[in-house]
Design a protein around this nucleic acid. Structure first.
Lengths: 150, 150
DNA sequence: ATGTGTAAGTTTCCTAGTCAACAAGGAGGG
DNA sequence: CCCTCCTTGTTGACTAGGAAACTTACACAT
C-alpha cells in the first residue's frame, strides 16, 4: 500500500467534509427564516430544557462561553430568546425562548427533516439507524471527556 | 411522542456536533506543526493529485474559490505550497507541494491517525468500517449533485 | 468586615470562510 | 480585428467562533 492511499483513510477527514456539506445546505434552507445553523442549534438545545444558563448551554453544544454569549446576544436582538435575571446570583442569568422563538421551532424542524432526508435518504434504513446510533455514541463520549478548553 | 423528543432525531445535528469536536481536537494536535486543519486538508488533497489548479481543488474540498485562494496564499507564505504558471492560459496556474510541504505529510498523517484512534477507537471494527463506508458514500453524492454556490 | 480565590459572562483580538464584486485573460462569431 | 460572453482567480465586506484577558459577583476563611 502506498502512503498516498493511506491518506484517504481518516474518518475525521470524511466526517468534516460531509458535515460541512450538510450544514451548508441547511444554512441555505433556513436563511429564508432569517436564522443561521448555529442559531437553530441553540434554539433547539433551549427547547429541550428551559430556562437554561449560558454555561450549561455551552457545554451541551460543545462551544465556548464566548460563542454562546454572542449567539445569545444575536437571538435576543432578533426577539427569539430572552434573558431572565437570577435573583440568587447577580452574575448569572437564564435563557429561554420567547413566544416567537418557540413558534419558529416546528418550521425549522421541518426544514431540518427535509435536509436530513435529502442527504441521508440515499442510505438504507439500517444504515441510517446505525449512523445515528454511532454519532450519538460519539457525541456522548465527547461530553464525558472533553469540555472545551475555555 | 412529544415534539421535543422528535427534535433530537436529526442526523445532521449530531454529525455537526461530532465533526466539530473531532476537528477541534485535531486542530489542537496540529497547531504544534504550525498548520491548521484546513491547511492539512488542502495539502492532503494536493498530495493525491499534483499539480492541481485551484478550481479543481475547490471542488474536491467542497469550498469556494475564494477560500482556496486565501488558503493557498497562506500555504505559499509558509513555504509548503508553490504555484506554477500556466503557459497556455495566463489566468490560470497550478499548485503543488514544496519539498518541505511534502515532508510534513507523514507527520501530519500520523497525528490524524492518532486523532482518529482517540475518537473512533471506542467503536467496534465493524462499526468503524460502516461509518467510513457511509461517509464516503455521502461525500461522493455531494460531489455529484452539489457544487458550491459560488 | 475583608481579603483571597473562584465562577459567570462579556469583550477583544485573531483566524477562517462565504458571498458578491471585480480584474484579466480567453474563445468564438461577425 | 473587436465585441460580447465566459472563465480563472483575487479582493473586500461580513459573519462566525476560539482563546484569553477582563469585570463583576460570590464564597468562605480568617
Amino acid at each position: 500500500m502506498t502512503a498516498a492511499s493511506e491518506l484517504t483513510d481518516h474518518t475525521g477527514y470524511w466526517m468534516r467534509m460531509v458535515s460541512n456539506a450538510v450544514s451548508q445546505e441547511f444554512a441555505r434552507k433556513v436563511s429564508g427564516e432569517d436564522v443561521t445553523v448555529a442559531e437553530w442549534s441553540f434554539m433547539r438545545a433551549l427547547y429541550e430544557v428551559e430556562p437554561t444558563p449560558p454555561s450549561v448551554l455551552a457545554e451541551r453544544m460543545g462551544m465556548t462561553k464566548g460563542a454562546i454569549s454572542k449567539l445569545a446576544e444575536r437571538l435576543v436582538a432578533k426577539g427569539l430568546v430572552e434573558r431572565t435575571e437570577n435573583q440568587r446570583d447577580k452574575r448569572a442569568h437564564s435563557l429561554s425562548l420567547t413566544k416567537e422563538g418557540r413558534a419558529k421551532i416546528p418550521v425549522l424542524a421541518s426544514l431540518a427533516d427535509k435536509n436530513d432526508a435529502e442527504f441521508f435518504g440515499v442510505l438504507t434504513k439500517e444504515e441510517h439507524k446505525t449512523l445515528d446510533r454511532i454519532l450519538r455514541l460519539l457525541a456522548e463520549r465527547r461530553e464525558l471527556k472533553s469540555t472545551p478548553v475555555d
